[in-house]
Amino acid sequence: MRFLDYLIAVDVRTALMDRMMRKLGVDRQLKVVADQIQVTNRAVDRCRSCGHQEECSTWLDNEQNANHPPAYCRNSDLIARLRLAAGQR
C-alpha cells in the first residue's frame, strides 16, 4: 500500500466516525468530554481498525432516525456513554 492510499483510507474512516457521532447526536458531547483529545483519538483508532467501512457508509446513508449504532460498531460503548451524559437514551 502506498502512503497516499493509507492516508486516504484513514481519512475515510475518520469521516465515517464523524458522521456516526453526528448521526447519533453525540458529536457535541464528544467535544466536551474529559480528556477529549485522547477519547477522540481512541475512537478514531477503533474506527480505523474496523473492517465494515462499506456497511457503515451504507448504514449512515440509509438510516434516518437512528438511536443506536449498528452492532458491528467498535465505538458502541463510547456512543452509549456519550448519549447517557447528554441525557439521551
Rank of each mutant, 00 (worst) to 15 (best):
Y6R: 13
L7M: 13
L7E: 13
I8G: 00
V10I: 05
V10H: 06
R13K: 15
R13V: 02
T14L: 07
T14C: 06
L16Q: 08
M17D: 01
M17N: 02
M21R: 04
M21H: 06
R22L: 01
G25P: 02
V26W: 04
V26H: 03
D27W: 02
R28G: 12
R28N: 11
Q29R: 05
Q29K: 06
Q29P: 00
L30A: 10
L30G: 04
K31D: 12
V32D: 11
V32C: 01
V33G: 00
A34I: 05
Q36E: 14
I37L: 10
Q38L: 09
Q38E: 13
V39H: 06
T40D: 11
N41D: 15
N41K: 15
N41A: 07
N41I: 02
N41Y: 05
A43K: 08
V44W: 01
D45L: 02
D45E: 11
R46G: 03
R46N: 14
R46C: 03
R48A: 01
S49M: 01
S49W: 04
S49N: 11
S49R: 09
C50E: 14
C50S: 08
H52I: 00
Q53K: 05
E55N: 15
C56M: 04
C56F: 08
S57Y: 02
T58K: 11
W59S: 01
L60Y: 11
D61C: 01
N62T: 15
N62R: 15
N65C: 05
A66C: 04
H68I: 06
P69I: 07
P69S: 12
P69L: 03
P70R: 10
A71V: 05
A71Y: 09
Y72D: 06
Y72K: 06
Y72W: 14
R74E: 14
S76V: 07
D77G: 12
L78G: 05
R81M: 12
L84Y: 12
A85D: 14
A85L: 12
G87D: 14
